[in-house]
Amino acid sequence: MQGSQSTRTVSRGRAVVIYVRTMAVFFVVWALIAMWTGNPILLPSPLVAFEALVELARSLELFEQAAVSLLRMLGSLAIAASIAIPLGLLMGLYRVLDDVIDPTIELLRPISGIAWIPLGLFMFGIGNALPMFIMTYAAFFPILLGTVAGVRAVDGKLIDAARTMGVPHRAVLTHVVLPATLPALLVAVRLGVASAWTAVVASELIGAPSGLGYAIEWYRGLLMTPQVMSFIAMIGVLGYLCDRAVRELAQRLTPWAPETVASR
């Protein structure tokens, strides 16, 4: 045990070294290509891009726009989850309900959230509502389907056992079905977050007066490529952190679940 612990820290140290080395190679290649093209609008050198990043961070603009996008995503996620999770639980529990609703879901699901943008622009205009609608839509399907699949996968013996012992219907739901579904549900939420975060950029690019997507488009219009790159990097970092946060949450809430361990 002690030995494996120490080899693990050694390999972690090595991993950091390798990470830094790979990224260093990447930045050197980038710098060389930038020198070769010699066009700072087309491809600014990594140093210039880094300066822009620092500048945007110092003026807090980077964080303000990020906060706008993040809040929109959290809001949409809350709306999507509060509809999709109860609906998914019911669809998973009652076959009839699933028969009625599932085909409609399968008809709508192939239409990506992004395809709703032009119609959404009519329905909501440019503002907060459009990106939130698109993100809610994007997050809704993975959460719903994941919840349904999670409920279906609950061990029937657990439910039977609870019923045999005379546990009331409601308590079976809250004390057996829900905890057993939780791991699958959290995986579903993770997919929903990823899906919504992809949609944030597209919807803000076209239909919002603020946010990361909007900022990217704004600076592209001004041909300020280093700033464009900074915001793109921010989208990547936040996307990663959101995913990490849900995984961390999953591990806290469902430490028994094999998926959460495996996904680390």
Binding site: V201, L205, E217, T225, M229, I235, G236, V237
Partner: peptide, 14 residues
């Protein structure tokens, strides 16, 4: 983690 759509402005530029 960087969505393809986020790269779009750069792609248009290039």
């Amino acid at each position: 983690p960087i969505a393809a759509i986020a790269i779009l402005p750069l792609a248009i530029l290039w």
